[in-house]
Amino acid sequence: MNQQIQKLYAKAGKPERLIIGLMSGTSMDGLDIALCSVKKSGAETDIRVLKFKTGNYTADFRAKIKAIFSKKEVDLQLVCLMNEYIANIHSQLINEALKEWGYKNEDIDFIASHGQTIFHAPKSLHQLADYPNGTLQIGDGDHLAVNTGIITLSDFRQKHLATGGEGAPLAVYGDYLMFSKAGEDRVMLNIGGIANFTYLPGNIDASEIFSTDVGPGNTLMDQYMQKYFNQFYDKNGAVAQSGCSNSKLLAALLEGDFLALDFPKTTGPELFNLEYLIKAQEQSLTTNLSKEDVMATLCHFSAEAIANAIKNCVGEDAGLKVFISGGGMHNPLLVQLLQTKLPFCKFLSTERLNINPDAKEAVLFAVLANETLCGAPVNFGNRQGVPSVCMGKISLPE
């Protein structure tokens, strides 16, 4: 047997595995690095976050990603080069984090890397009859493995596509294994660039569980702040709170075809971008709104889309626990609007479930890697968009 395969086999069989989960989302605010201790698998998965940090991106690195992000036409040479460049930067951030935390690279069993999404193209978006669903994450796993010396799992979304899904959202798998609770209906709401949630019924029936994107979380607000306020995001929702939501613009924003699609569904900044906003403003004759009023309306738009989706899932008067994670949970106006629109729901941080809400998406990929290495596919029933598969390509460091 190949020596590296023997090492892989031995590490997968350990009673406790140290797995680094990585997440770099559409907001591109940095690389979330979660060092996790993982025992067992499946419904018995026992995971603890030992260390967590967000490795900061430089303005230059962020600009390089944006040059190829969410665009139909890009420099193909640059895409090719960035596949390696992103992996090299991520490797550097991992090595720095381990040194900061007092760990040696050889102490770590596996890396689980989401990579950097540069384009997401489900059929509902591209509408090209001859082509399948598509998505592309770059930041090559072999480069991560070689540069850190750690066995790496990456490119998780392609197996989901290959078995009939849209490549997203993948949260259903980790949310089910980590957060289901008998006798308690839960919604795991992640408000990143795009907002998504997982519905976890208290009967623990995997065939009833699903995840779906619902529409914009922070992406429209972030894009608007970057263009018109020269700020990366609206810290504490301060700009939005200084304006007033405009009902005409809000109504136009809510008329998008995606919002009326059935669950599960996926989307991205390829749809919800400043062009989407401009069209809504032209349609509603609101192009002269103050920038503060536009920001307020965008915040209301995100809240309305999220609240409507949860109501469609659990009913208008359903009272259940909604556990929030992602950058949007730090926007007090957005959270306040959700509480107002869903008065019977109780909003909590995933901190209550012993998972740092900022680390949750990175932890998810550690769980997905653990299932591929040590578990077996959970049977989610024969449903479109939720294939019962293990995911992730394995890269060996030598």
Rank of each mutant, 00 (worst) to 15 (best):
I5M: 14
Y9H: 14
I19F: 02
M28E: 09
L35G: 03
K40C: 08
S41E: 09
E44D: 13
D46F: 04
Y57E: 07
S70Y: 11
L81E: 15
A87K: 08
N95Q: 12
W101C: 05
E106D: 03
T117G: 11
I118E: 05
F119N: 12
S124G: 13
L125K: 05
Q127M: 14
D130Q: 15
N133T: 07
G134I: 13
T135S: 15
L136A: 13
L144K: 08
L153N: 05
L153Y: 04
E166W: 06
P169G: 09
L177V: 10
L177Y: 01
M178T: 02
A182K: 15
G183M: 08
D185F: 07
L189F: 03
I191F: 04
I191V: 09
N196E: 09
T198H: 01
I204F: 12
T212S: 15
D213A: 11
Q223P: 00
Q226A: 06
K227V: 02
S247H: 12
L253I: 05
A260F: 13
F263G: 07
T267M: 06
L274H: 00
Q283N: 11
L285G: 15
N288L: 14
V294T: 10
M295L: 07
F301K: 00
C313A: 14
G315W: 13
G315V: 07
K321A: 08
F323I: 03
G327Q: 11
T340P: 01
K341R: 14
T350A: 00
E351R: 06
V367E: 02
L368P: 01
L373Q: 06
C374G: 12
P377Q: 06
F380Q: 11
G381T: 08
M391Y: 01
